[in-house]
Amino acid sequence: MTLIDLANPTRFLALSARVVPWLAAATVILLTIGLYQSATAPDDYQQGATVKIMFIHVPNAWLSMFVWGVMSVASLGTLVWRHPLADVAAKAAAPIGASFTFLALLTGSLWGRPMWGTYWEWDARLTSVLILFLMYLGLMALWRAVEDPSRAARAAAVLTLVGAINLPIIKFSVDWWNTLHQPASVMRMGGSTLDKSFLIPLLVMAVAFTLLFVTLHLAAMRNEILRRRVRSLQMMQASQKAA
């Protein structure tokens, strides 16, 4: 099974039809385990039960960046290798990425509420994620604005790659802007200092959410391929007068 075999949309549809149910089942099982572990994890001595938002927030934040990575690879596929499924992959990923980013923002602000006293603080991390969210929405608007998908594909691919290059610059600028105004960040989430009772459920949740993304992405790609087929069938129907 190579990338060339997958290039044929028909084979992709056949293969993904077999894979998606298994992926979905694995996602459900892992999510169940992860949620159970998260629920039974001990409360944090400082943050209390609110720390449990972390088990949802961190996987969403991780995926908000991972999906942009996937889209960047797909964009390279569109521009460099001209892989026929690349733009389908990129287009299908954008709304899912935007949803994860939105959930990261939502859970982040819910988590921040007890600590900051407001739902929103112009915290460097959250602000960067907000900009990422705007970029996702812009990309989706671009896909929708152009009628013909193959024409939109190249523009979207260029924008995605420019975004990928710009994201670290934006992140750096926002960090610098933020420290300029408020020296100490209010929220600390250490990576390696996490206790094992937190780390394992977090990892399970991260894997579960990644599987969720893969499942949704494959399903969305199938929908996009079918949508394009409907479109070309409609165009054929328009061009021939029924006898």
Partner: peptide
């Protein structure tokens, strides 16, 4: 005018003659 087969299709799909 011979467009009854395309009633529900978007006008974007029509040719200039259609």
């Amino acid at each position: 005018v011979g467009l009854d087969h395309a009633t529900d299709l978007p006008a974007a799909f029509l040719s200039a003659g259609q």
